[in-house]
């Protein structure tokens, strides 16, 4: 129940963020969020590193809005995105993927009345969230393997990457099925 409240509070807070009209309040919130990240000993360096990945999107959005509605409005949108990013970062570091999946499962509880297998959906979400970073790493390894065989991958060569990735996903799915069986999971 605690995680359901946490998740709903996070969603409500995110929605509120998009209704705030004052730039000063948003700037204060961004500073506050970064302080929370530091004080709660959440990986601050990783937060900055991940922000660097997001920065091109933030800059692009700021730029487009600056052109359309003026530079102040553009900055306002950019800061709003930063506020949303920082609170999301705090939230995802305060909950495990399993807890997140269980929370979504609890919220989907009414679907049980429509005979929907909510437990299986919860499990799929939990495993997908856990496995996703590993799959991304595997894609990177396949790319290195192809490049080590003398092919420099460009956008028009990406189809070559698809086949080994697809095979890897199928193999992984097969092994996941075996792992679920060995851990006593029974469908239905």
């Amino acid at each position: 129940m605690k995680n359901v409240i946490k998740f709903l509070s996070f969603i409500v807070y995110l929605v509120i963020l998009f209704y705030i009209k004052e730039l000063k309040i948003l700037l204060l919130l961004v500073l506050l969020h970064f302080s929370f990240i530091y004080v709660l000993k959440i990986n601050f360096r990783l937060a900055i590193k991940r922000l660097a990945w997001l920065l091109p999107f933030v800059i692009f959005t700021t730029g487009i809005n600056s052109i359309i509605s003026g530079y102040l409005y553009g900055i306002f949108i950019g800061v709003r995105l930063l506020a949303a990013y920082t609170i999301t970062y705090i939230f995802i570091n305060s909950i495990t993927t399993r807890e997140m999946a269980d929370t979504i499962g609890k919220l989907l509880f009414p679907l049980k009345m429509l005979q929907v297998d909510v437990e299986s959906i919860t499990l799929i979400i939990a495993i997908s969230l856990s496995i996703l970073p590993i799959m991304l790493e595997e894609i990177k390894q396949k790319k290195y393997a192809i490049e080590s065989k003398g092919m420099h991958l460009r956008w028009n060569h990406m189809l070559i990457l698809l086949k080994p990735i697809f095979i890897s996903i199928l193999n992984r799915t097969n092994e996941l099925e075996n792992a679920l069986i060995t851990k006593g999971y029974e469908e239905g």
């Binding site: 993927t97 399993r98 495993i127 969230l129 856990s130 992984r172 075996n178 792992a179 679920l180």
Partner: peptide, 11 residues
């Protein structure tokens, strides 16, 4: 790698 399902040892 094939037997790990979740990103917490306890889970």
């Amino acid at each position: 790698e094939n037997q790990i399902l979740f990103n917490s040892v306890y889970d």
